[in-house]
Simulated scan of single mutants.
Amino acid sequence: MQSRHLRFGKGFRPVFAVRKVQAAEMVIPPGGSEGGPDNYHRGADQWIYVVAGSGLAIVDGARRKLREGSLLVIERGERHEIRNTGHGLLKTLNFYSPPAYTDGGNPRPPGRRAARKRAG
């Protein structure tokens, strides 16, 4: 068993990974954003749960409002951006399947499955 107390400090921080799933916390300040039109995960699906705040998700051009309690799934390969449209911090808990980041927060390359999918 693994356990961590989430602190939701600044920015993005991987928490830990177990086998094929990774958890991370992300905090976006008011007016800030993460991602953009060229941001996507080649080898992982991303599940975002909004812990606090409000924002906007733009996924492959589709817009979805985010608020406390929202759950959003961004499938591998979908280009996306998360914007904080509120007055307070936008705090999210993210899950990646399979893990998408190193412990230091750097993107991992896609696994063999994703590479086969691109090649086929």
Rank of each mutant, 00 (worst) to 15 (best):
G120N: 14
R13G: 05
V50L: 04
R63T: 11
G31W: 01
I48N: 01
L89P: 02
R76Y: 11
S70C: 11
A23G: 07
L90V: 03
K117W: 14
P109K: 10
P37S: 08
G105N: 10
F8T: 00
K20C: 02
K65L: 15
R118H: 12
G35W: 04
A44G: 05
R116G: 12
G35L: 04
G53Y: 10
V51D: 13
V18N: 09
R118T: 13
H80V: 00
T85Y: 09
A52N: 10
E81D: 07
R67S: 14
G88N: 13
N84R: 01
G111W: 12
G36P: 03
R13T: 05
T102S: 15
G32Q: 07
I48P: 01
G111V: 12
K117M: 15
H5L: 15
Q2E: 13
G69L: 05
H5M: 14
R79I: 07
R13L: 06
I74P: 05
N94F: 05
R116W: 14
L56S: 12
A57K: 07
G36V: 02
G69R: 03
A62R: 15
R4T: 11
R42A: 15
G31N: 06
D38A: 13
I48H: 02
R4F: 10
S70F: 05
V18S: 14
P14Q: 05
L56V: 12
K65A: 15
R63N: 07
Y40L: 08
G111S: 06
P98F: 12
N84V: 07
G36K: 06
L66V: 01
P29W: 15
H80W: 00
S97Y: 02
G31M: 08
R64E: 15
D103G: 11
S54T: 06
R13H: 05
A24W: 04
F12R: 05
W47A: 15
N39M: 04
